[in-house]
Amino acid sequence: MDYREKATILVVEKISDNMGGYEETETELKTIKCKVAPYTVKSIDSKGREISYSLNKLFTKEKILDDLDDDFKILYKDKKYKKVSMADYGKCYMVVMERDD
């Protein structure tokens, strides 16, 4: 698999507002080389209708975060995506991502 495409990993940091709350800011963690492939998911809703929607799979050899359960966002081709799931296959990592509108 060729990893010619690039994506930027964004993490959300919570900064205290000194009044008991916080403000969220997105910061760029790093840029990774990757391969992105779209795929379609089909499911049946409660009324028996078939619903299909598109997700993307991102493959990379680079370690993104230390913990696979940590949340992050991906900036890919000027569009922002959120992580749905992530898997470590030993030789590569796979991130399932959907558009974050």
Rank of each mutant, 00 (worst) to 15 (best):
S52K: 15
M1S: 10
E28L: 02
R99Q: 05
D2V: 10
K79M: 13
G20C: 06
E23H: 07
T31E: 13
Y93N: 05
K47E: 15
K35N: 12
T40I: 15
Y89H: 13
L29E: 05
T40F: 04
E5P: 02
E24D: 07
G20T: 07
K73C: 01
M97Y: 05
D100Y: 14
S43Y: 14
I64P: 04
Y53N: 05
F59K: 10
K77I: 06
L68R: 08
T40K: 15
E5Y: 03
Y76V: 02
K80H: 01
D2G: 10
E13P: 00
G48H: 09
K6P: 00
D71W: 02
L68G: 01
V12G: 00
F59W: 08
K42W: 11
D71Y: 08
S46K: 14
K35Y: 14
R4Y: 12
L68F: 13
D101P: 11
K6Q: 13
V95R: 03
V11G: 00
V11H: 00
R4I: 12
S52F: 05
K14V: 01
T25K: 14
I9N: 02
K91W: 07
T8D: 08
R4V: 07
L29S: 06
K73Y: 10
V11P: 00
S52G: 04
R4F: 09
V11M: 07
S16A: 12
V95E: 04
A7Y: 02
K61P: 03
D70P: 00
N56G: 00
K35S: 13
D66E: 14
D71H: 05
S43T: 15
E62I: 06
M86N: 01
S43V: 14
Y81F: 13
K42M: 12
D78K: 14
E13L: 09
K33W: 04
K61M: 14
D78I: 02
S54T: 15
D17S: 06
V12L: 07
C92S: 15
C34Q: 04
K57T: 13
T25L: 06
D78C: 05
E62D: 12
S16E: 08
V96A: 08
K83T: 02
D67Y: 06
Y89A: 07
I44E: 15
S54L: 11
D69A: 10
M97H: 06
K33P: 00
T27W: 00
K83P: 01
D69R: 09
N18Q: 10
A7Q: 03
V36T: 07
L68D: 07
L68S: 08
K30T: 03
A7I: 03
L10T: 01
K77W: 01
E98M: 10
I15D: 02
S54E: 15
T40N: 12
T25S: 02
I9Q: 04
Y39H: 15
A7R: 03
F59M: 11
D2S: 13
Y53G: 03
K77P: 00
T40W: 07
I74C: 02
T8R: 03
V95D: 04
E24N: 10
I9M: 04
S43C: 06
D101S: 11
